[in-house]
Design a protein around this nucleic acid. Sequence first.
DNA 1: TTCAATAAGTGTAAATTTAACACTAAGATT
DNA 2: AATCTTAGTGTTAAATTTACACTTATTGAA
Lengths: 233, 233
Amino acid sequence: MQQPKKYRYEYERPVLATDCVIFGFDGGELKLLLIEREKEPFKNKWALPGGFVFMEETTEECAKRILLEKAGIKNVFIEQLFTFSEIDRDPRERIISVAYFALVDKHQYEIIAGRDTLKAEWFELSMLPKLAFDHNKIVKTAFQRLKGKVSYQPIGFELLNEKFTLTQLQALYESILEVPIDKRNFRKKILGMGFLKALEEKEKNVAHKAARFYSFDKKTYKDLTQKGFHFEL
Amino acid sequence: MQQPKKYRYEYERPVLATDCVIFGFDGGELKLLLIEREKEPFKNKWALPGGFVFMEETTEECAKRILLEKAGIKNVFIEQLFTFSEIDRDPRERIISVAYFALVDKHQYEIIAGRDTLKAEWFELSMLPKLAFDHNKIVKTAFQRLKGKVSYQPIGFELLNEKFTLTQLQALYESILEVPIDKRNFRKKILGMGFLKALEEKEKNVAHKAARFYSFDKKTYKDLTQKGFHFEL
DNA sequence: TTCAATAAGTGTAAATTTAACACTAAGATT
DNA sequence: AATCTTAGTGTTAAATTTACACTTATTGAA
């Protein structure tokens, strides 16, 4: 059935949407959360979770809503990435997408496929399928941004559990920056910055010396920053 | 007379616009190009040049068109800044703005007020008036971006004439980074990167030793970049 | 034509940061 | 008890960064 078209404007208007690039990490390679589309266009193709912006929400609120509705994710790091406005990026009509990227502690979520979604799955960044729309381009932009940003802002921690070992942290940086890092130099540098809190707790049930857990002390980091400290890996 | 409202949609849609933050430099402080609005809302207030996005253009094309139409500026560095989507940012109705920032060689343009514009004028960044809409916020975001970016991408040159002296270049960096820089160290570093071409030409009619002109050699820079070189000031 | 004023242009040494590198410690499994 | 695996640790050389002052070229005034 045809819906009534009750909104009338003097000038033609594009549709406004957001798409979310969701990064996760579990020790190996960096991962990306994709959904399989339930509807046309690109039915049964993998895509970034996305949706239309409502009139009573900002694009950021929209992105957060989509994270929750389509993947059950909330309270995570989210940042505006870029606005994609190519005229033919959607085959239906002109849709402009404000893309966001999110950093998620992958283990904290049992990913659930939500509305308009058949499946939701984590993919290795280097093994992505061909995605719907211009989503491969959006992902590429997002990874470049993450890679560029991770060295001068402490956002890597968002991908790890609250408690993490220095080896996990190093593996994360190696995987984002795509270079090997010297263990001793890495530890010296990151601990020297002074915002990692050593916890009493250690790993359990590992067939080797148990590693100490650390946590990112946001308050200390903020204090340091206000004193002119500048994170740089 | 009321125009016919010929576009009908099932769902309500916001309007899409772009606004341009245009930076210029003339040796003293960093400057910003503002226009005085001819129409309501904010009639006679200073604002960023901006306008609505047409259906047959991307937001970047729109920003370039606005630069040309409202300020007579073309062929300059332009980069997407951020998309501002607060619900009440425009008193008329919901307008989402994709903001761009541009870097202009101020001396190359006789700024001309264009359509819907009473005046166009350069303002010192530290002496801005209260602007229309959320434009003060947009400017703040743009300056932060410029400040952050200027140290790791060679975009400062876009604000200078093709030929410039090292003193001019240093003054530019000092003004953007808001810190004093040691002359000898600055020269050593920037010349050491190898992409500044020393010209034969020197300053004329100056009451002191005439400074040599340099130019930014894009080709050399590109070659260096491909060999893994990374600009860093 | 000489002098004063002004900004251009230049090098070195000390301090700091970065890079390279290998063995011992602890816990689990056999 | 022996083996496997990863955690954890310090030093030295090299490279980079910082701090710093005088000579040179040009104009304009005396």
